[in-house]
């Protein structure tokens, strides 16, 4: 190990030792594996479905019982994407008129089919978040992944249509703003922030949950757009020097 590494290791060792001691103390008081006693969790499992009309209790927690925390998480997402954009946008040289077409038709067709499948699957996971496992967070990443397939299968020029900053930045900001706006709307109506505004709907269908459904979609939009912005920034900072060298 080099000198710097040795210094780092020497500083880390006592800190890690202290941490290990704390960890051991914590673990000795923790419950045995498989014997969970938390009252909050068991209570929620029992009352969430009749109370919130959502068969997915985890999604009900994320968007309703702990909806405020989700707003905080969304802003972590937003802030770090802003950080990435600030760092990487100035690394970009002007794009010019590069083209990098994928000439094989089989790849383009396959890419089109796969992209549709992935985007629809992502939308499905996001939409049914209140009924089956899933929700806005998972679906959003899947949708963004599907759209990136456009670049992989079709080349640079079609990608710029999807990945332009004029399209994605408002979408991402809109998603974050929609979440806060829904909360504020409840506030204006005289109820606590993020209180459920619409009727609760029928359990087990797409209409269940009231405001949770809208919040779910706001998060899906935000996560998908944020991921796409990330991929765009990384791709652009990589591609443009690469293409201009051809």
């Amino acid at each position: 190990m080099s000198g710097r590494q040795r210094v780092r290791a020497w500083i880390a060792a006592p800190v890690l030792g202290l941490f290990a001691a704390l960890l051991g103390w914590g673990f000795s008081g923790a419950p045995a594996f498989g014997a969970f006693h938390g009252a909050y969790g068991e209570l929620l499992n029992r009352i969430a479905v009749p109370q919130r009309h959502s068969t997915n209790v985890v999604t009900a927690i994320v968007f309703d019982y702990r909806g405020f925390d989700t707003m905080g998480e969304e802003f972590i997402l937003f802030a770090s994407v802003v950080g990435v954009v600030l760092l990487l946008r100035e690394m970009r040289e002007p794009a010019g008129d590069q083209d990098d077409p994928v000439t094989s038709d089989a790849i383009r067709l396959f890419g089109l089919v796969m992209m549709s499948v992935v985007v629809v699957a992502g939308l499905w996971v996001a939409a049914f978040g209140l009924v089956t496992p899933g929700g806005g967070f998972q679906g959003g990443v899947a949708i963004a992944g599907g759209i990136v397939l456009v670049f992989l299968a079709a080349g640079y020029r079609p990608w710029t249509r999807f990945g332009s900053q004029h399209l994605l930045d408002p979408l991402e900001g809109g998603g974050a703003a929609a979440y806060v706006a829904l909360g504020l709307a409840a506030l204006i109506a005289g109820a606590p922030f993020l209180h459920n505004l619409l009727g609760l709907g029928v359990t087990g269908t797409l209409k269940s949950g009231g405001s949770m459904t809208l919040l779910n979609w706001a998060v899906a939009l935000e996560v998908a757009a944020a991921n796409l912005v990330l991929y765009t920034e990384f791709l652009e900072s990589y591609l443009v020097p690469h293409l201009s060298r051809r």
């Binding site: 209790v57 702990r66 972590i76 990384f234």
Partner: peptide
């Protein structure tokens, strides 16, 4: 059923950590 509260914490954390690691990579 198992505890839903910790699952909600973990699930949002997994997706948000992507952006944070992306920030580290950009740095």
């Amino acid at each position: 059923a198992v505890d839903p509260v910790v699952q909600s914490l973990t699930l949002t954390d997994v997706v948000v950590s992507v952006t944070v690691i992306a920030l580290i990579l950009a740095l």
